[in-house]
Design a binder for these strands. Structure first.
Lengths: 250, 250
DNA sequence: ACCTGAACACCGTTCAAGT
DNA sequence: ACCTGAACACCGTTCAAGT
């Protein structure tokens, strides 16, 4: 009698395979049936570990968030403290617990979260489609509020900061102009005639691109460094909040 | 012979019905087959006006964006110019065309866009799932860049502003904590025991909520006024950009 | 020209069975 | 306990036909 080599299924093994499948072929390929064949099993077996597709997706999000920075609590020293704005010293009511540089701390967390999103590009879309907030996120946001309050923020301003951050703590912003729409009309489809037409119809956008492009030859919206832009946005919000914290109250 | 009352199909009629269906029952209900029955027709007839589901969704987005502020160009005077930050006078290189109050102009546009999103809550999700940028958006963003440049922004800073705005020009931010997750675990499901457990596990969040709730009795994250928070975020970014425009360059 | 029936290749999911 | 075949109600889409 040949003993089967295949190790038994388990919830975590199913979820790991689901993440791998989404990474390899995109979320739209993540179906119960295709996931089953990836696990060398029939589709119905999955229902012993995940009650439904919804639970599968919830588990996938949870898995990805847990495998990353959002999981470990401390993570330690804010090394990269290169803020161009205000000095980094503790605010008027800084508790002096060593986290006076709240901007450096949050900045580092947001940038770390961005690495997660870069590894799993489907995460933002999946996250926003979920109706339930993944439990890990509560802990993550609790730490953010803690950091703010420790730095002297009122709860009210901390609350507003949370809203202003939007999806930045999760490492992404809503991108309107995708760098390279998969399967969409690429730059090669834009003929010279269309380009001229665009220049007259969209004078400011074309002028902006022309001003920004120096050595790059690609005349599309895919030329900018999204990492730099992400950091700019983070600092813009962080510096604005710092002004409100130290400034006229609010 | 009875002449059929039903007026003939057309692309715009199909799209209008699609928008109505999405409004009434959500995007997930927007399928070719259900849309067909809503139009009293067989599913295959739709393919004469929209070549595929993708084109349907593109058309729906286009329709919604066109029916709104993003369509009409001028829209006129920035009435609500209540900025708390810097004075509203023209900047160092203001052209004086009457649009010195660039913040008021953009603020008004973003808030108008928000009304669109409130009318069609499924728009953000549908927009971000689309791979092609709706053509109307190019014109819309061109006007935003024009407003910034007219106000004295360099193209470089205008570009960064576009990134920093994220989805704000479209009237929404990526909401992590939904006010009321449809079909999810509502506030009524949170027993007292869970609440106490949450208080110890999430001390900062619970303290924040407690500090914010005054008269409201609902102890969940659904208590805050999203309109106020949206405006706060808009002003935070606008004021920060104004500082960069008038300040030390960048 | 405009619409359609039948069919195909997919979905998620239930249910009654297998070992 | 763990897995599964068959079936159901849905999808988007093709293709050859109807009027």
């Amino acid at each position: 009698m040949t003993r089967t080599i295949r190790e038994p299924l388990s919830r975590s093994r199913v979820l790991a395979a689901a993440v791998a499948l989404a990474d390899a072929e995109g979320v739209e390929a993540l179906t119960m049936r295709r996931l089953a064949v990836a696990l060398d099993v029939r589709a119905m077996s999955l229902y012993h570990y995940l009650p439904a597709k919804q639970a599968l997706l919830d588990g996938v999000v949870e898995t990805v968030l847990a495998e990353t920075v959002l999981g470990d609590p401390g993570l330690g020293d804010p090394v990269l403290a290169e803020n161009d704005g205000a000095p980094t010293g503790p605010g008027p009511e800084g508790t002096g617990t060593g986290s006076g540089d709240w901007r450096g701390v949050l900045r580092q967390r947001f940038l770390a979260a961005r690495q997660v999103t870069l590894r799993h590009p489907w995460l933002p879309g999946l996250l926003s489609s979920r109706s339930n907030v993944p439990p890990v996120l509560f802990a993550y946001y609790d730490r953010i509020v803690g950091t703010l309050v420790d730095a002297g923020f009122s709860y009210h301003l901390a609350h507003r900061a949370l809203h202003a951050f939007g999806s930045l703590p999760l490492g992404f912003v809503q991108e309107i102009f995708r760098p390279d729409p998969v399967g969409g009309t690429g730059p090669e489809d834009t003929a010279e005639a269309d380009l001229a037409a665009m220049a007259s119809a969209l004078p400011h956008l074309t002028a902006m691109v022309a001003a920004e492009v120096h050595d790059a030859t690609d005349p599309t919206l895919g030329w900018c460094d999204s990492q730099t832009e992400f950091e700019f946005t983070v600092d813009l919000l962080l510096n604005g909040l710092e002004r409100l914290r130290t400034g006229s109250g609010e």
